[in-house]
């Protein structure tokens, strides 16, 4: 099976921000059965991110306020080279900028590396104070960024969007029209808050953070479902996928591949092996011969 022209061994993609700082941990995900990996979102300069606690669990998932911790694009791309020396499994470099122009500048740097794809993180909710509203909420800004990256990039790129935008499907379509080669749907939801009732204080140091995990899965499934009907480009369906059955739902509504983030928290980095097994067990008992036959199944009558 090919994704944007590159061979992938499984539909599972390590989502951005999960163990994606070092080549060694991304290689582990591949050894454990991930078909592709995404780096932590990288910026022009290093960022320490927010102070801990950066995650607060609730009954249904996580809220996180990592705050885009990353060593910067230059060191990040050195890890990409280390990764590519060891494997052919595609790697997606996630980038984010403070200003609209940063994205093209970052994309040019990624072009010069061995990376397979770029992902524009337009939607991280963790840095609003600093960056004002996330770009992903503004269809015109998304269009501008996508067009600027499209002009400079020589490798395919995906646009990662926020479920906080009520018109997320229109935004995804607009991004496609401006040159985006695929969509990653969805980033974390909201801001959520978890309160410690004994101290009457928010658990996260930053007080609030993006919601991920099982609680957002039905939302992600609906968004991918709707996006599949409008887009002609592939979708990495991401949000709450924790089991093989969750992944099957995501494929059936139209995801080409399936992003996995918070499940690493619940099931460890070898979650990919388990997901592959669970998916294959379903295929074997069904009329299908390959997982790619599941893609968009829901849309056939």
């Amino acid at each position: 099976m090919k994704f944007l022209g590159k061979e992938i061994a499984s539909p599972f993609v390590l989502a951005s921000g999960i163990l994606g700082i070092s080549a060694s941990s991304m290689l582990r995900a591949v050894r454990d059965g991930a078909g592709m990996v995404t780096t932590k979102s990288l910026s022009l300069t290093p960022r320490a991110g927010h102070d801990s606690p950066i995650i607060a669990e609730f009954d249904g998932g996580l809220t996180n306020s990592v705050g885009l911790t990353n060593p910067g694009i230059y060191e990040g791309l050195e890890e990409v080279e280390k990764y590519k020396r060891e494997t052919d499994a595609p790697i997606i470099v996630s980038i984010f900028g403070r200003h609209i122009d940063d994205f093209a500048e970052l994309a040019k740097l990624v072009n010069q590396s061995s990376a397979d794809f770029i992902e524009l993180n337009l939607s991280c909710p963790n840095v609003e104070d600093e960056f004002s509203r996330p770009f992903a909420l503004d269809i015109h800004k998304v269009g501008k960024i996508v067009a600027s990256v499209s002009r400079v990039t020589t490798i395919p790129f995906l646009t990662k969007l926020s479920p906080n935008a009520p018109n997320i499907i229109d935004i995804a379509k607009h991004a496609e029209e401006k040159g985006s080669h695929g969509a990653t749907l969805i980033n974390t939801l909201g801001h959520g808050m978890v309160i410690d009732i004994y101290t009457a204080k928010p658990v996260l140091k930053n007080h609030f953070g993006g919601i991920s995990g099982p609680a957002i899965k039905p939302l992600a499934v609906k968004i991918v479902h709707d996006a599949y009907k409008r887009l002609n480009t592939p979708i990495i369906g991401t949000g709450g996928v924790t089991t093989g059955n969750d992944a099957i739902e995501m494929l059936m509504v139209g995801a080409t591949t399936v992003g996995v983030g918070t499940a690493v928290y619940y099931r460890g980095v070898d979650v990919f092996k388990a997901l592959d097994n669970e998916l294959n067990a379903f295929i074997q008992q069904s009329e299908f011969t390959h997982w790619s036959e599941l893609i968009g199944r829901v849309h056939r009558d």
Binding site: I18, L19, G20, I21, S22, A23, S24, S25, M26, L27, R28, K40, G49, S52, I54, I55, V66, T69, G261, T262, V264, Y265, G268, V269
Partner: peptide, 22 residues
């Protein structure tokens, strides 16, 4: 160690990718 539970990647050791917090 930022998360302590194996998702943030800050404690990973090279070249094996060992996740020290876990």
């Amino acid at each position: 160690m930022k998360c302590g539970v194996g998702i943030c990647g800050s404690c990973v050791l090279d070249p094996t990718g060992l996740i020290l917090c876990q």
